[in-house]
Design a binder for these strands. Sequence first.
DNA 1: TCCAGATGTATCGAGTTGATACATCGACAA
DNA 2: TTGTCGATGTATCAACTCGATACATCTGGA
Lengths: 216, 216
Amino acid sequence: MRGRSDVLEPAILGLLHESPMHGYELRKRLNLVLGSFRALSYGSLYPCLKSLVERRWIEGTESVVAPHTVASKRARIVYQLTADGKEHLQQVLASSGPATWEDENFDVRFAFFGQTDAETRLRILEGRRTRLTERLETIRQSFARTRERMDEYTLELQRHGLEQVEREVRWLDGLIDNERGLRRTRPAGTGRPTAADTPAETDDVAPARTTEKERG
Amino acid sequence: MRGRSDVLEPAILGLLHESPMHGYELRKRLNLVLGSFRALSYGSLYPCLKSLVERRWIEGTESVVAPHTVASKRARIVYQLTADGKEHLQQVLASSGPATWEDENFDVRFAFFGQTDAETRLRILEGRRTRLTERLETIRQSFARTRERMDEYTLELQRHGLEQVEREVRWLDGLIDNERGLRRTRPAGTGRPTAADTPAETDDVAPARTTEKERG
DNA sequence: TCCAGATGTATCGAGTTGATACATCGACAA
DNA sequence: TTGTCGATGTATCAACTCGATACATCTGGA
């Protein structure tokens, strides 16, 4: 149960917390929410549902949808959180460790910020920022080291990649600013967390560190 | 040999065309060139090398590196393109079909634009642009359709995703402009393909179409 | 001299993908 | 009525990929 399931699991629990659903719809909603970032196939969805049922975090109810003819019964399994599942979800939503600011997990966690408390939101955003800043440093170094030996297109590709990460950091800056503002001056849930126009020098933000794993 | 190997294969051939290399270095170079976009593990590299050898596109030479002690011999297998391999590579580099402008393949193709002729470069860039434009349309639609039912964070995530794709399109616009300019007015290989400051309305650019596969 | 860390080849289990099978439902036309 | 088409729905499989790791040698520095 390694790998992507660390993403899938919270996503499923999070969606089911909003309302019970069956597999097909779960898939649609997930691809809607995370669509631009990642896809979800049945091959991972159904095994994951199965395993969640086994661990008693969700339970499936065979529900028969009323068709227009009387005799036919169309099986669809509607899943919902159990008490244990709700508790587990709360635990997951409260976590803000290094794992939460990795590429694979961050998006999902962010998508469910609505169910996450302000403290945790801020910690995750700041952790993510640190993570990206580290990557930036790595990229910049290998960029400087090899700029001579590269042809123009490889160079352009790297420049473009660098820019994307830089932009991502600025996006986070805006969100962090907004979270801080929310907490200090406004009643919760007001302003939209749009990236601010002033990038705001927040280089002091540097919680826990993860070490960059071989990327050059 | 489906999936990522469609990426790996051309990448390996492209690198080996520049100079013979052994596995470890191939991996380093690949992660250097494509580092910000994707990673490469041994678990995929070595099987791919093996399969390339079997198809006679590359051949590995057991080379013993002179160590400072006399007795020890350190095995390292240096791979290089065969004549068949070179031919195949040329064929791959000349292709510009729908597959080349998908997410998984585009970066690699772009990284080897230096070995690709101007016509093909332009076709790939334009195809990629069309591809992204289609995706933009899909995202915008599901965005408009569901904007009411979403909480602010999910919305922000989608807005951010949309923006990234939009930016990608503008990047391509700059590159396309540059390619056209190169071909028309400048001797080949001069100007840097930096994204132009004027996005340049090139909406007429619309070669062949691929249909979007379920994303809502 | 010895050790930690880089270099180097190689494999494995666990998990994921994309395709596909199978079946029902709703709508629309002949 | 019947036929067919595309969406809805659950489920599985072979092929493939990842991350970790094993094993060994080389290099630089304390």
